[in-house]
Nucleic acid binder design. Sequence first.
DNA 1: TATTGTTATACTCTATAACTATA
DNA 2: TATAGTTATAGAGTATAACAATA
Lengths: 168, 168
Amino acid sequence: MADRRLTRRLRKKAAAARSKPVDAAVANIDLGLLDGHLGYLVRRLQRWIFNDFIATLAPLGLRPAEYSVLLVIEANPGLTQISVANTLGIERARLVHIIDSLQGRDYVLRVASKTDRRSHALVLTNRGRSALKDIKALAAAHEKHLIERLGAERHGTLLKLLASFAYG
Amino acid sequence: MADRRLTRRLRKKAAAARSKPVDAAVANIDLGLLDGHLGYLVRRLQRWIFNDFIATLAPLGLRPAEYSVLLVIEANPGLTQISVANTLGIERARLVHIIDSLQGRDYVLRVASKTDRRSHALVLTNRGRSALKDIKALAAAHEKHLIERLGAERHGTLLKLLASFAYG
DNA sequence: TATTGTTATACTCTATAACTATA
DNA sequence: TATAGTTATAGAGTATAACAATA
């Protein structure tokens, strides 16, 4: 059960942050060589995005990593844990706990594999498929916040540039 | 003292990762809606960058957050802890430990403020200024890895796009 | 009353090692 | 011997709350 006060607080905080530039720009403090490092800027954007995602999905209490696992299982039912872990760049030891959590909410199921008794085939439950509809709606709302913040053009350009990094 | 075996391992791992696309592209596993979410791609890039940064600076054992704090203090000597924390988006409670660590290596000093006895003025020590030369050289090598991976053009475009997000 | 630095706590995420049961 | 899943541990980073000294 999600804590409604927590949800409200997170939403309010995220809404406030959504339109705000970082403090350095406001206070005119020099970043030194930092603004020549892409890593700094990528990290700031990544924090902003995750904070907004977590706040937007707070009613369902779903974290970014859990969301990514649900989407990959939906698109590739029967995938093993090691495949999901490698696909998403998550340690297999950590994925165990994420699957535990998703199974605890009755979103996914570990089915015994027929070909290899060491591994599990991961599938969505009916409840998982149903919940995913609401989850996707909130995730889309989050992406809308991001587009509002970046502008549709920059958002599209970034999607293309970064996709070609990841898959190129 | 940095562990040389750790350094070698990290360098080797980073060198291997530097030229490799993510596993999903290799194994042809469907990411579902995930490739429409900028957050996923930003997170993958951010992990790649931080891993390479940590591996490249392993001989000095300096983490990204520590590096960013050093640069800001260098560019703004006398800044208070709260200002550094707000500038970089680090919690002030966490910055305490980062400054502890940097002071423990004799890189920075907490000087009593003359105008407000609650706060500290942060400055680099001579040793800190000297170390920063080597640190910057390694950080530049890291940025070079990133440019090799992305291509100079994409790297430049991303710097511009993300800077206008952070400071716009 | 509010702010700066500090201490403490809880939780998420990364990284690694070791164990089991299978292959 | 190697791999899939699991358990355990250590460290980084985030988020909060509370306290002392000072404003």
